[in-house]
């Protein structure tokens, strides 16, 4: 008998089953992370082991889509990392202003909070009428939520603080309408956001854009997959276009490290070289 950890083998078979049957590819995600998610999912399902999950995934679509939700991270907030958005206002907006039409790709937008944040900034800078924000994710449920633009009222205090720390000068409550426990984002913010299903792992370039935001998505990928997605971003950006990563992500370990110039090192903002 070979010395193979049974749980790890089961995980790899489960991910293979998900990929072959449904096309979602988690095989190159960080192992410790994906293991944690699958173990949690198994505990919630009441199934005894991961092999049972595999059988159920293949024969029960509802179970498969539940697992997909469990493997998808939807933690996000408006103006997450306010200092980052401050840097966007100071260092990126002046670049965007030089274009007659502005295309922004928000990759891995989840439930949309950061896409709305960007829309707010573009509106305040007087650029929104000539801007299109492509906000994409592979999680259709999160995407539908994002498109509705309905968020819990209880989050608004934190979002307002973030907005103010990011350099926002308006009244944040002017960007949404409250109704009982929820708020709905203004139509004027929604109008130029195109919500679309796109999977960074399996789909390819769909537009040429001036700004890509992809924050705290690549941390879940192994280095090989990170490289592949970075190539996709490089190919989607115009020369001189801007790439924004999460506060703990960088180009340091990728093949494209030499092809960008740092705009703001701390906030992980890079400019594609001409």
């Amino acid at each position: 008998m070979r010395d193979i950890d049974t749980t790890e083998l089961e995980i790899s078979l489960l991910l293979e089953a998900v990929y072959q049957k449904y096309g979602y590819d988690f095989r190159q995600y960080s192992e410790a992370h994906i293991k944690r998610r699958i173990m949690n999912s198994r505990a919630m399902s009441g199934l005894e082991n991961i092999s049972q999950m595999q059988s159920k995934v293949l024969n029960d679509e509802a179970f498969a889509s539940k697992l997909l939700q469990d493997l998808s991270i939807t933690v996000t907030e408006m103006f997450r990392d306010p200092a980052f958005y401050r840097s966007i206002r100071e260092n990126v907006i002046p670049v965007l202003k030089t274009y007659p039409f502005i295309k922004i790709w928000h990759a891995g937008c989840s439930t949309g909070q950061e896409a709305y944040s960007m829309a707010i900034i573009m509106q305040e800078e007087g650029l929104y009428d000539r801007t299109t924000i492509y906000a994409t994710d592979f999680n259709q449920l999160a995407l539908s939520h994002a498109k509705e633009g309905i968020f819990s009222n209880s989050m608004m205090k934190e979002y307002t603080t973030n907005y103010q720390l990011s350099g926002g000068k308006e009244s944040f409550s002017g960007y949404y309408t409250s109704s009982y426990d929820n708020v709905i984002m203004n139509q004027s913010l929604k109008k130029n956001i195109v919500w679309a299903n796109h999977n960074l792992v399996t789909d390819s370039v769909f537009a040429e854009v001036q700004l890509i935001l992809c924050r705290n998505v690549l941390i879940y990928f192994n280095r090989n997959l990170q490289n592949k997605v970075q190539r996709l971003f490089y190919d989607s950006l115009v020369n001189g276009g801007i790439l924004c990563l999460g506060s703990k992500e960088s180009l340091r370990f990728t093949d494209l490290n030499e092809d960008y110039t740092e705009v703001d090192k701390k906030q992980r903002i890079y400019k594609k070289d001409y």
Partner: peptide
């Protein structure tokens, strides 16, 4: 961020 250790003794970060 959550901090995790991979089998190859490298770090992973998540915002789970």
């Amino acid at each position: 961020y959550h901090l995790l250790i991979e089998k190859d003794k490298t770090f992973s970060l998540t915002i789970d």
